[in-house]
Structures are given as structure tokens and as C-alpha cells.
Design a protein around this nucleic acid. Structure first.
Length: 711
DNA sequence: GACCTGCTGCGGGCTG
């Protein structure tokens, strides 16, 4: 075994002790490459294929841990994943006397202090904790990370194309600025499509210095589609009964897409199970369930092999955490992306020889169509391509505040130098950086003091808030407490009042008292209740999913994966669209002529839909968008459509001034990103065009669309 | 009809 021979003696000993007869494919490849070169690598292979070891076996063999300072920095998008990886990495290090330290908001402060006194070994951390370190303990950063050898980034795909990824990219650059060494970066992921390699490479370092090691082997998947019509508010009893039968004798994860429905599924399945004397291990797992309860659920799932269980969850259990053996995955209504479907399918059958077993329930026809489209794209190895923001002024605003706070008094020249070094902002030109700094001084975010820049009055409020470190917006939540013990959190809604019953953490509660001042809700157990209201934001569906849905509707083939009810729904769907003669799937679109309006089925991505709806509204024509079925209702007659397209094109030529007007009128428009509202208006326009809308493709689509009426 | 992710520092109260 060539790769094995390259490893250090203690690591070889570890492998013998583990009784591994051979290394996995991705491990063989990564050991040979990492041991022999200083390139960055992205290790891409499916869930549970040993990626963590693929990175750490060679790193632990190669790095001299007797050197001063932390040698390996492991960055994870989630605390739960850090806690999970801690045990694995610590076990690996057992024969090596290397210390492993967790560093996140819930990690022990005493252990953090110990690390600061004697910086060494491996640190597991979140991007936000790194940000906080730069801001609050700038001197720590250089003593801890000034002599780093490796950075490992887990679940790399979760950072691609999102604000949090830009923040991480910027932080990585700031770490490199204080480092003596050329730090090597290793990214780990199960779902990076080849279209996204370039974005992924530039996030972790210089694109040309980064290689991808791919183990493309997929697991065999058994999938069944079932259909049960349900209302928006409640799942039908037939669906629940069927779901109970599907899940009663297995270890199962159920993904119902939102927190309210997660609670509904957990409580109702448990009720059915109680009635027929089935097992009682029904749980709900999502961000609003208290951490301790969530951890105990994870512990149970991981360490118990005897009992079956059913965990209803949101995407909290979609990433990384090793939940032990799961036999079956249930998806209720379509995932929002193919990437998410890939992750969820990967959760089942974790042993090599197991197949993945998946059941998809649909509760209405559009959801069935979307699920089927995502499944087709999954089979064709499609993953949503991500875009890297070219001019992320909002992230730059945040990072300027962070850098100025980090070095407390900073000359403008030095600030400029640091921003310019940072490849996150490569496409923002010198004049724009100058201008933004100038405007930040003008608006009191920064202050000129004795030739240096310091944080200004308005800036102080932002930087000193505990919300400064993350890129996500935060709502105010109420703590739900029973006998002083926290059950979880829910947002304020009409439901939050004395005497109401709610469901949380798979249990039913009666609200006894609400303390509006301290944001607390006191509850006692009850027997019947409603799922809590949570407020989510809209999710953008990719264009390719919608186009695949369109193709499925116009095809005639049948799918063996569908149950009878699903097949019937698909047939009637096809019947409904039968008389629209489509010859070009790119631009022919069905349109229904109503009395005073046109209903266009655009079958295109959410961003294009939002842009079209916005542009048409600017013409003064009445318009409404339903992104769920991708339909746009426009208040004109079909003979006036050509005129409307011309008008939309005319408006698009001066879209910037329209956007400035709309930003004034509608303050929430810019709140799609957390720091957008602090920017000067012309920069708000740029980030809206780049990240919220997609006018370019919308205009292209509108100029080429051919409306097809039913014949 | 709409997911998820993360975070400080201080001070009060308790334990040893």
C-alpha cells in the first residue's frame, strides 16, 4: 500500500489499532498528494467516505507539532459539527500528544484561556468566532495563528455563493496577512459540482494553486414517490398513517421543509404510535429546539443500535453530523435545491454496502413535479452552479469596520493596503474603496482622528453589538420555559398569549404566562396543540429545476418510481398542458388568457421571476407573481404583449434610477442582506442587481419568449 | 408559502 507507507509511525499504529484492512479511495489519493506537495486541495466525495481522515491522516503525519503556535485550524459552518469532529480528531491524535481545542460560543472558556497561554496543536472553530477574535482579541490572532501550517474547511459547499462564504474568504486572507508561512488549505465537501470548482478554489486560496481530488462514486438509491393531497395548514390523516407504516420499523429521518411542519409530523406520528403500542422515540430537531434537547437526540441516534427512531428535522441534520445508522430518509414535499436532495439522500445507508432508501411524499401537484425534476437532475449529476459576487460592497463595509476595530487606529493607507491584499474584493476598484471609506467617514461609521481612522459613533453601535460577527439577520425570539428549563424558542405571533396551546420539541404545551419584557413564555404540558408559527424568508429555486419541470409535463414517458396516485396526478397534469404546442423549451411558454389579464407559466428561476415582476410593475401594468408554480399574471391583453416587452426594455435602460426610487419607497428591499442598509444608495443598487435580481437573464428571457396559447 | 447557519462581555448568583 503506497499511501500507507508515506504516513508517520504513530498514524500507522492508529490505523492498525482501528483494524482497517485498507484505506478508502479518497484517502489513498489525498495522502499521496498532501504528503508530497504544498498545493491546496479540495477533497470531494460522498457522505461517510472518510473525508475527515483523508485530510487529517497526512496532515498529522507531516506537520511538526512541536513548533510554537497552533498548527492546524479546522473551520466548520456549525457548532454541532465541531463537537462531533472533536471526538474523531482527538482519537486520531491520541498517539501523538497533540492537543485539540474547540473554540466556539458554547465551548468552555477555561480551555480557550489555556490555549491562549500555550498556543499549540489543532483548533476547531467557526467563521464567526474567528471574526470575533479579530475584533475583540486582535493580539490573540497573531500569537495563535501566526505560525499555522494547515487550514481545513469542512462542508465547503455550504460557503459557496453566499455572504457567509465571502466573509470566510476575507477572514482567510486576513489570517494569511499575519502568517509567516504559506498556509496550505484543504476543503472538504460531498456536493461541489464541477461547475463550481473555480468558485470553490478561489474561496480557499489562489485558484491556480488548488487541485480537486474527486471520488465520484454514488450510492445506489431506492426511491419511491407517494402522493397524498393535503391542505396548507395540516397534513392529511391518510398521509400520516402511511408515513407511520413506512417509518415504524426503521431508523428514519423525516425532512418536512419547515419547523412548524416538523413539529406537526413528530407529534402526530407519536400519537399514532402510542395508539398501536409502537415505539416512543419520536423527536423534532430544528434551530428553535433547545440545544441540550437537540444534543440528547443526536446522542441517542448515534449511540443506540437497538431501538428504531424517527427524527423529524429541518436542514439541521442535513450537513455533516454523523447521526449513526439511518435506514430510511423521508422527504415531505420538494427540497429547494438539488444540492440539498443530494445531502439528504446521503444521510441514509451510511455503511458502504447499504443502498440509500428514500420516500418522497407530495401534497400537491406542483410539489410532485418539482420533486421529480430534482430527482431527474440528481440522476444526471446536476448541481446548482453558484455565482461569486463581483462587488460585495456590503461585505466590504463590514470588513472595513472589523479591520479598523482590529488595529484600533489605522491610517487610511494601511486600511487601503489591507483591503487591496484581500482577493475577496478584487473586482472592486481602487476609486470605489476610497469612495466607500470617504462615505463611511461622512456617515460617522468611521472617524478621522489625528490622521488615523477610528470607529465612529454610528460604527460603535454596530461593532459593539453581539450581532456584528455573523452575516445572517436575527429575529427576536421568545424563550419557551417549563419549570425553569428551556424547551426552545419561538418568534412572537398572534399565538403567543395566555391559554394558547403550542407544539415544540415534539411535545404539546399550554402557555401559562408571557413576559414581554424579558421575552419569556412559561408553559406547562398539555394534550392538544397547534404547531407554532415561524416566519421564513423566500427561497430561490434554480432555473434548471423549473425547466426540467416543464420538460416532464410535456413528456409522455412514465416513471416506475411513482405510486398510483402520483402517476395519476402526473397524467392529469400532462392532460392540462396537452394543448399547448411547445417546440422550443428555452422560450416557448404556456399562457392562459383571462378576462383582463394573461397568466404566463414562466417555468424559470425565482430570480428571473422576481426581476420580470419588478420590471413589469415599473411600467404601471398590474402584475402579480406566484413563484411556487412559477406563474406571472399580467394585466394586459395578449395583443399588447409586444408593446409591454418594448416598455420593459425601455425601463431597463435606466434601471438604476428606478431602483434608487424603489429603495426609498420600499425599505425592506435592501434587507435581503444584513449590511446592505448601511451602504450609500448607489452601492445598494449594485448589490441588488447582482445578488437579489437577475435583470440580464430576465430581459433575455422576455425578449425571446413566445407565448403559446392552448389549441 | 417560504431552511439553516452564528455571536461578546459583563455582572448576578451560586458553589467550594
Amino acid at each position: 500500500m503506497k499511501a500507507f507507507d508515506l504516513l508517520s509511525e504513530p498514524i500507522k499504529k492508529y490505523i492498525w489499532k482501528k483494524g482497517w484492512s485498507e484505506l478508502r479511495q479518497i484517502q489513498e489519493a489525498s495522502i499521496i498528494k498532501i504528503m508530497s506537495s504544498d498545493n491546496n486541495y479540495i477533497l470531494s466525495s460522498r457522505t461517510a467516505s472518510g473525508k475527515t481522515e483523508a485530510a487529517f491522516l497526512p496532515i498529522l503525519s507531516k506537520v511538526d507539532f512541536y513548533k510554537q503556535g497552533v498548527q492546524v485550524l479546522y473551520i466548520s459552518p456549525m457548532i454541532a459539527l465541531i463537537n462531533d469532529q472533536f471526538y474523531r480528531v482527538e482519537e486520531l491524535c491520541k498517539y501523538l500528544e497533540i492537543s485539540v481545542t474547540k473554540w466556539h460560543s458554547e465551548a468552555k472558556k477555561s480551555l480557550k484561556d489555556k490555549l491562549v497561554k500555550n498556543p499549540n496543536g489543532i483548533v476547531l472553530i467557526t467563521p464567526e468566532s474567528l471574526e470575533a477574535m479579530f475584533v475583540n482579541k486582535p493580539s490573540y490572532v497573531s500569537t495563535l495563528f501566526g505560525n499555522l501550517s494547515y487550514i481545513v474547511i469542512d462542508e465547503l459547499h455550504s460557503f459557496l455563493g453566499v455572504d457567509r462564504g465571502l466573509q470566510l474568504m476575507s477572514i482567510l486572507s486576513r489570517i494569511r496577512q499575519i502568517n509567516k508561512n504559506r498556509v496550505v488549505t484543504i476543503g472538504l465537501s460531498a456536493t461541489i459540482g464541477s461547475d463550481n470548482y473555480s468558485v470553490a478554489k478561489s474561496l480557499i486560496g489562489k485558484e491556480e494553486k488548488t487541485r480537486v481530488l474527486l471520488d465520484g462514486i454514488k450510492k445506489e438509491t431506492e426511491i419511491k414517490f407517494k402522493y397524498f393531497d393535503s391542505s396548507d395548514t395540516e397534513l392529511s390523516l391518510d398521509l400520516l398513517k402511511d408515513l407511520y407504516k413506512e417509518t415504524a420499523n426503521n431508523k428514519v429521518l423525516v425532512f418536512p421543509n419547515n419547523r412548524g411542519r416538523v413539529e406537526e409530523v413528530a407529534v402526530k406520528l407519536k400519537k399514532i404510535s402510542d395508539r398501536v403500542n409502537g415505539h416512543s422515540f419520536y423527536y423534532s430537531h430544528h434551530s428553535s429546539v433547545d440545544k441540550e434537547i437537540r444534543e440528547s437526540i443526536e446522542f441517542f441516534a448515534k449511540n443506540n443500535s437497538k431501538y428504531n427512531f424517527c427524527i423529524a428535522c429541518t436542514s439541521t441534520l442535513e450537513l455533516g453530523i454523523d447521526i449513526g445508522s439511518v435506514d430510511k430518509i423521508v422527504q415531505i414535499d420538494s427540497t429547494y435545491s438539488v444540492a440539498s436532495l443530494v445531502q439528504r439522500i446521503g444521510r441514509s445507508g451510511r455503511r458502504d454496502e447499504d443502498k440509500s432508501s428514500v420516500v418522497v411524499y407530495s401534497t400537491d401537484k406542483w410539489s410532485l413535479l418539482q420533486s421529480l425534476a430534482s430527482w431527474n437532475l440528481y440522476k444526471s449529476d446536476f448541481l446548482e452552479p453558484v455565482k461569486i459576487a463581483r462587488k460585495p460592497f456590503d461585505i466590504l463595509f463590514h470588513q472595513i469596520l472589523s479591520i479598523v476595530k482590529q488595529i484600533s487606529a489605522c491610517s487610511k493607507k494601511e486600511l487601503f493596503r489591507r483591503v487591496r491584499f484581500n482577493s475577496t474584493f478584487d473586482n472592486i476598484v481602487d476609486e470605489e474603496i476610497d469612495d466607500l471609506i470617504f462615505k463611511m467617514v461622512e456617515l460617522d461609521y468611521l472617524e478621522s482622528f489625528d490622521k488615523d481612522l477610528i470607529i465612529g459613533l454610528e460604527g460603535e453601535a454596530i461593532v459593539n453589538s453581539r450581532y456584528f460577527y455573523s452575516m445572517f439577520k436575527n429575529d427576536v425570539n421568545y424563550k419557551v420555559l417549563y419549570l425553569g428549563k428551556k424547551i426552545g424558542e419561538i418568534p412572537f405571533s398572534s399565538q403567543v398569549k395566555n391559554g394558547e396551546n403550542i407544539i415544540l420539541a415534539a411535545k404539546i404545551w399550554k402557555i401559562e404566562d408571557v413576559d414581554l419584557k424579558s421575552y419569556k413564555i412559561f408553559v406547562t404540558p398539555a394534550v392538544d396543540g397547534r404547531k407554532p408559527k415561524f416566519f421564513g424568508s423566500s427561497v430561490d429555486i434554480h432555473q434548471n429545476i423549473r425547466e426540467e419541470m416543464f420538460k416532464i409535463i410535456k413528456q409522455v414517458n412514465s416513471y416506475s418510481e411513482l405510486d398510483i396516485a402520483s402517476s395519476e396526478i402526473l397524467s392529469s397534469f400532462r392532460e392540462e398542458f396537452k394543448n399547448f404546442k411547445i417546440s422550443n423549451f428555452d422560450y416557448d411558454r404556456p399562457v392562459v388568457e383571462k378576462n383582463n389579464s394573461l397568466l404566463i407559466y414562466t417555468f424559470t428561476g425565482s430570480k428571473i421571476n422576481k426581476s420580470l415582476n419588478f420590471l413589469v410593475s415599473l411600467t404601471g401594468v398590474k402584475t402579480s407573481l406566484n413563484d411556487y408554480d412559477s406563474s406571472l399574471e399580467i394585466g394586459i391583453k395578449i395583443e399588447d404583449f409586444k408593446k409591454l416587452v418594448e416598455e420593459v426594455n425601455r425601463i431597463y435602460t435606466s434601471i438604476d434610477s428606478y431602483l434608487i426610487r424603489e429603495i426609498d419607497r420600499n425599505k425592506v428591499l435592501i434587507e435581503f442582506t444584513k449590511w446592505g442598509k448601511y451602504l450609500p444608495k448607489d452601492y445598494q443598487v449594485i448589490i441588488l442587481k447582482e445578488r437579489f435580481f437577475d435583470f440580464e437573464n430576465a430581459i433575455k428571457f422576455f425578449n425571446n419568449i413566445r407565448l403559446v396559447v392552448s389549441k
